[in-house]
Amino acid sequence: MLPQATEPEREDRRAALAALLWQLADDDLVVAQRASEWLGLHPHVEEDVAFASIAQDELGHAAMYFGLLEELGFGPRDDLALLRPIAERRHSVLLEWPNGEGEYWDEPHFDWAFALLRHFAYDTFEQVRLERLRASSHRPLAELAVKILREERYHLAHHTMWIRRLAGHDAEARARLIQAGQRVAELAGDLWDTGGWAPAWERFGLMADPDGLRAAWEAAAVPVLEAAGLPAWEVPAPRYNGRRGVHSPYGASLVDTMATVVRLDPRAQW
């Protein structure tokens, strides 16, 4: 029989688990919101269908993670998703960054190369993170990781196809990919920051090898860019850091937008 965990030990484990779940849930919620802003605006209709479907998948994954937080006693998952202030959010700043100039309801001049490469960077990261959660000591999280990985491979295959196709198309497409890639790289530095939780995640068996996230991301992302003949990304230390609650001004307005309906009528059902 295993020795009984002491009360402080149990509390430490719960805090470490919650910290991990906030990052997972907030990442997927925010990337889904930004992806859904593209509805009706894509370069062509098939991509509208694809991105909407990807957004729906990510939102579904976020709902599952928020559900795990609800089970841990943090409150109803809808409230966790919609009503927390930006300072409490732990998603990567890369994911809250706008799709471009304007808003989706007002003069949207979005940059599809940026959206595509952002998703590529994030979905690659998601894959290496989920691989490290397959054997998590929190069983429900391990089960979710196995399930989500099966869905995610379609996303990554999609982004990779577009990168290859656009990079080989013409000079303008290549130039846009290179320019957007630099902007994604500048913002990507907080993706693999664990917010200081790596030792606790490892100690409690919640995530395997959290310190290896960045190297694993590079090992997965670099060959795709290389095969497309695109320059390697230089990822500097992050200017903001969502994992530590330091968000860009865009984060606050995104959270406000997401909460518009629920604040108008908190008892609304839909």
Partner: peptide, 13 residues
């Protein structure tokens, strides 16, 4: 295959 994503999450076009 025209699209790996379709009218629902579980279908392609």
């Amino acid at each position: 295959q025209d699209n790996a994503f379709g009218s629902t999450a579980c279908r392609s076009l």
